[in-house]
Design a protein around this nucleic acid. Structure first.
Lengths: 111, 111
DNA sequence: CAGTTATATAACTAATAGTTTATATAAAAT
DNA sequence: ATTTTATATAAACTATTAGTTATATAACTG
């Protein structure tokens, strides 16, 4: 779910991995070269991304080819829908609410 | 930037806070009641959300009213654009690539 | 002014998570 | 069969972070 996806992407190296994979499937070795971090670290991050459902693996000889899975990104997209009204439109309920709060006070205030 | 936003949202309670704030501005006390977690914890998470630019504060008497800021969500939306082609369309470069990899091998293989 | 309300902050603890180093495994090549 | 290539995994270490408790601060109330 959303929470797991966000957690998985919250780590810089994992975000970079995903960013590499958007250009298509890559082997572990290729990712190591791209990110310039150790192979075990890449493998570990890939396994976390895998458990979170962001990637899937296919084996070809000794190589493991990692690919992005669409689902979690689709979910993020749906999740964001609720937030779309934050922009574009006037979403200035804030001014309104601040006025309300102040009025509540003025009602019971000395001055 | 994207990284900071994802990190901020990767924590369950912070995601819940954001989820409360989408219904409009709320005071700290209101969030405490909604989430049923301690006030200092809510304050701490709010300050993290604030530093990440996800919320802004307005003071009314002793209350601090927190509001969502549109920008980071807008950024997430733009960021997701690159991933939209993952779904809907045929994005099966995987099959193609796996074939390629296998062919590379078969070229230099005994059997 | 004394008391109350609302929130922030600091000090600390406990849990989690990232990184490194060394080693295991499995397939391929020689 | 031995060596090489590609990747995973485990152990140990370090760093980061969530959560708690206690206290400070600032504004309002009576």
């Amino acid at each position: 779910m959303m929470q797991a996806t966000l957690k998985a992407l919250s780590e810089p190296n994992r975000l970079r991995i995903v960013d590499v994979l958007i250009d298509g499937p890559h082997s572990v070795g290729e990712i190591v070269i791209e990110l310039e971090i150790s192979q075990p670290l890449v493998s570990k991050h890939l396994s976390i991304l895998s458990e979170a459902g962001l990637v899937e693996v296919h084996q070809v000889a000794q190589k493991r080819i990692y690919t992005l899975r669409a689902k979690p990104f689709k979910e993020m997209d749906s999740w964001l829908v609720s937030y779309r009204r934050l922009w574009g439109e006037k979403f200035n309920r804030l001014d309104k609410l601040l006025e309300e709060e102040k009025n509540k006070l003025e009602g019971g205030t000395k001055k």
